[in-house]
Design a protein around this nucleic acid. Structure first.
Length: 282
DNA sequence: AGTTAAACCTGGTTGC
DNA sequence: TGCAACCAGGTTTAAC
């Protein structure tokens, strides 16, 4: 499923082609998380700016093109891939298919959101600083590769919370980008028990965790977004990253580091995989 | 306020 | 074999 690396790879894939493109048609399929929030036809004529990413959200800026009618609108589309969504250019002539729920036709090609489970979203907003986009982004924490996110900053954020560190990573209020897979893998790499309360993590352990998170996400980015390629089967983990996963989805199998059987527990209604020997609470 | 649970949805897998 | 039950996932929303 699309976690930060997959969303970033998606952004890089579509950004250059979309930049400067003119919207020629908009088609909505079945409902996604929210209604689009504007009349689809009203977007026609807008020109696309540079696609940016905030956490797992993508922002496709639109601006009016007064030169030729219809001029379109000023604003943009906030998109989320949910857990089964993908964005790709399609042949204008191709059939939408049962899971194609949003088409953005442009003079550079047809960008299509395909999302079988429809947890994804496409939401029109006048800007990133206004509703409805602003309140959605307001709750997001720091970008994992933001230099401003120091071990000290992570430690300070942890000190005020009692939730398990795995739950904190998944929540995204402090650091965005890690979904269930990368949260488990980062904690494994850092040697931290996922059940450890945030306020019990020392600064050295926060330092290790931040480094491990960056290594994990960075490695996935290198692989071109491990789960992107093949997300539609094997519950989204059939991509290249699964071969590298130390613990995720490996309940009962030997820990690659020490051989102990990997354990599976449930935290915040999500599966957590970890090595009970390599990952410690202190 | 901080934390937890329910809801959204559907393809795939498991159990009867 | 067929069908029901359950599972996975990210995020928001509602409720403790």
């Amino acid at each position: 499923m699309p976690e930060l690396p997959e969303v970033e790879v998606t952004r890089r894939t579509i950004a250059a082609r979309l930049h400067g493109a003119r919207v020629t048609s908009v088609r909505c399929g079945k409902p996604l998380r929210w209604p689009l929030g504007c009349a689809p036809a009203g977007l026609v004529g807008s020109r696309l700016g540079e696609v940016i990413r905030h956490g797992k959200y993508l922002w496709l800026p639109l601006r009016r093109d007064a030169a030729q009618p219809p001029a379109g609108v000023d604003g943009g589309l906030l998109m989320h891939l949910g857990m089964s969504g993908s964005l790709a250019f399609h042949d204008t002539a191709s059939e939408p298919g049962p899971h194609a729920h949003f088409d953005l036709g442009t003079d550079r090609g047809l960008l299509r959101l395909t999302d079988p489970r429809r947890f994804g979203a496409v939401l029109w907003s006048p800007s990133l600083e206004e509703a409805p986009a602003a309140p959605l982004l307001a709750r997001l924490g720091a970008e994992p590769f933001d230099p401003a996110l120091t071990p000290q900053a992570l430690h300070a954020a942890c000190r005020r919370r009692k939730v398990a560190i795995k739950t904190l990573l998944l929540g995204g209020q402090v650091v965005v980008g890690a979904g269930n897979i990368y949260a488990c893998e980062a904690l494994f790499r850092a040697g931290i028990d996922p059940r450890t309360r945030c306020d019990r993590l020392s600064l050295p352990r926060c330092t290790r965790l931040l480094a491990a998170l960056r290594e994990t996400l960075g490695r996935a980015l290198e692989l071109g977004g491990s789960t992107l390629r093949d997300f539609s089967d094997a519950h989204g983990v059939a991509g290249e990253f699964q071969a590298e996963a130390g613990v995720y989805g490996r309940e009962g199998q030997p820990c690659p580091r020490c051989g102990t059987a990997v354990r599976r527990i449930v935290q915040a209604q999500r599966s957590t995989f970890f090595c009970p020997v390599c990952q410690r609470r202190a």
